[in-house]
Design a protein around this nucleic acid. Structure first.
Length: 307
RNA sequence: GGCGUCGUAGCUCAGUAGGUAGAGCAGAGGACUGAAAAUCCUUGUGUCACUGGUUCGAUUCCAGUCGAUGCCA
């Protein structure tokens, strides 16, 4: 591919605690770029310690976007992020040749790189109704509705997963059209190059880092951060590892030690799910976090190749 | 020291009226189209503590050894 467009988005992803933040800052400095966070929990200003937001020093070293720009009370979703990130990229590319997107939310990264179907936002009231139906009538009831309203999607959807069924019903009931009508798996072409890389560590080393980082979070005051958010525990943004376990502790469902263990376990599982997501992306090239020189060489080589 | 109970998957434990065993959790793999740090699916062979004995056959019964634990001294 040869064209004269030099604008390049460097995507740095990988499982939680692998070392994305510090590498991104170094790359941003090297390539003279700003950083866009693609971390669906670092968006929220109330979440800091528990979501390992970059510290003040890191944030002042390089300009970051999409960090602490929302409140946990705001409704947000991938599609909004797609629009806002593309808009911000266009703006950044008017002065810079590079931008760096870093974070662990695979779906959010994909929305920016590949696009996502054009669907209506969730209607909170309808969602509440459907959740109530799930609770009172059971998942079978929702399945039956879906089967009637969108037999095609009924064939494809994970019928054990209430979230998927509810989402489809939301769209159908809001628009009067089947959910499958909106689903679109064609990739959108972006007006910039994308170089995707991911960081990887051996599982047991990553697990050690996770355990260590959770301990550090507690030293930094995670307990009081979570306590201050207890009144909002029902919010979607607070259905987050590091907080929900402490809510269980505050609600006297589990002991403090158990909560701490659960946070470690759930973070490990989160990292595992992230790996599952990235592994199937053929555009990702994998590196060890320590291979900074190699990573820079790779990026430069890709650029030369594309220009 | 004596008496009792226990020793089974990484952990907690079930079970086999003698035919080599199974749950939960952890772990592993996967899915994923506006809840995504969310949500969901699949996945359990391990000297049944050790050494002998009885038996066609012992993880299961018996004896001893070691370890854990409780009570009594």
């Amino acid at each position: 591919m040869t064209d004269q467009n030099p604008k390049t988005l460097i995507v740095v992803t990988g499982p939680t605690a692998v070392g994305k933040t510090s590498l991104s800052i170094e790359l941003a400095q090297f390539f003279n770029a700003e950083i866009l966070s693609a971390d669906s929990r670092q968006f929220y200003k109330e979440l800091n310690i528990g979501v390992a937001r970059p510290d003040e020093e890191e944030l002042s070293a390089v300009k970051h976007h999409f960090i602490a720009h929302l409140s946990v009370h705001d409704y947000y979703n991938v599609s909004k992020y797609e629009v806002e990130a593309l808009d911000r990229l266009q703006h950044l590319f008017s002065t810079y040749n590079y931008a760096i997107m870093t974070g662990g939310s695979g779906m959010y990264i994909d929305a920016v790189c590949k696009g996502i179907a054009d669907l209506p936002d969730a209607d909170p009231q309808l969602r509440e109704e459907l959740n109530l139906q799930l609770k009172e009538e059971g998942i079978e009831f929702l399945r039956a509705q879906l089967k009637l309203l969108d037999p095609d999607y009924y064939q494809q959807v994970d019928l054990a997963n209430p979230i998927r069924i509810i989402r489809a019903l939301e769209v159908i009931l809001e628009t009067g059209k089947p959910y499958s009508y909106f689903r679109d798996n064609t990739y959108k072409k972006r007006p910039f190059h994308i170089i995707k890389l991911a960081l990887q560590l051996e599982r047991n080393i990553l697990n050690e880092r996770i355990n260590l980082r959770v301990d550090e979070m507690f030293e930094k005051g995670l307990l009081s951060e979570a306590e201050s958010l207890l009144p909002y525990q029902k919010l979607t943004a607070l259905n987050t590892v590091g907080y929900k376990e402490l809510f269980d502790y505050f609600n006297q469902k589990i002991s403090f030690d158990q909560a701490k263990e659960d946070i470690k376990t759930h973070t490990r599982r989160y990292a595992k799910r992230q790996m599952t997501w990235y592994r199937k992306d053929p555009d990702i090239v994998w590196f060890n976090p320590s291979e900074k020189v190699k990573i820079i060489q790779y990026i430069e080589q890709q650029r030369r190749h594309e220009l």
